[in-house]
Nucleic acid binder design. Structure first.
Ligand SMILES: [Zn+2]
Ligand SMILES: [Zn+2]
Ligand SMILES: [Zn+2]
Ligand SMILES: [Zn+2]
Lengths: 139, 139
DNA sequence: AACAACCTTATAGTAAGCTATAAGGTTGCA
DNA sequence: TGCAACCTTATAGCTTACTATAAGGTTGTT
């Protein structure tokens, strides 16, 4: 057991602890993703364990594919603005469908390009390189 | 048979023909993706069928997943700076591996998020929403 | 001659998420 | 006291691929 909720950290220490650049932390603050922390007499930001939790939330959400804007919404929900789980679910589902659409685009690209690369491997005459042909070909 | 190579077009006509905005065509010109076209006495750009071919090349390459910078390289190759087909192939392969890496990222996101969404569907109590739990959970 | 619909340039703004720079104040330690 | 290593703010720049705006010149038709 450590004395929780009493840790005091500078921005540099929070940065170190969460593997986030201090500049980025200030940026998140400006964007409203992190609350304005209290300050020391000399105007240094003071963080505690709650800040670590917040920042970790942001990093996790980013990994799962949420944008910073999405994350603001998620925080609003997490912070208990009387919403329902189904609302989060719907929100996550809409992000999920964006991810899937993006994947479909990439899959189409991957298919076309890999087939071209394979055909290209067959001969080394640039005159009939299938990649260039595909790009140049009329209609 | 139409009299090819003798077509004269304004930027608006080229834009129409290739479904590209005229501003975008000028932008490609500034970026060096399109050659500076000849001008009329009144300084209007004059295009011909070659310009259509060039623009089509650009649009196709974009669809396959090349960036505008990539396309400049491809054009250099297509314009015959004594390179070999294997060079194009290597280039296309490197782009392909970027696409695949991106897909792998998205796949991981998709997996995590869809599993969360499914679990979330099971109960509507926000207190134990698995999405929020995953984001907030320590370690 | 009037007018719309084109064309020209230069400049600045948009998206997202940082990252860099300048110019200065504070802390901690030898 | 000196100095490094922190901290502060404001401002600007980066990436990619456009997109918008302003202010003006040209073309073609009535
Ligand atoms: Zn992507
Ligand atoms: Zn080839
Ligand atoms: Zn991505
Ligand atoms: Zn839920």
């Amino acid at each position: 057991m450590e004395p929780k909720g009493r840790t005091r950290m500078t921005i540099g220490q929070l940065a170190e602890k969460t593997a986030t650049d201090a500049q980025t932390i200030r940026y998140y603050e400006r964007q409203g993703l992190l609350l304005d922390p209290p300050r020391t007499e000399s105007n240094y930001r003071v963080y505690d364990e709650n800040s670590v939790t917040r920042l970790t939330f942001i990093k996790r959400a980013k990994e799962i594919g949420f944008s910073l804007n999405d994350i603001k919404v998620l925080q609003g929900i997490a912070d208990g603005e009387v919403r329902q789980c189904s609302e989060i679910q719907a929100f996550a589902e809409s992000r999920l469908s964006k991810i899937r659409a993006h994947m479909a685009d990439l899959t189409a690209m991957e298919r076309t390009l890999s087939s071209l690369v394979n055909q290209c491997a067959l001969s080394d005459k640039i005159e009939d390189c299938p990649i260039l042909e595909t790009l140049t070909e009329r209609e």
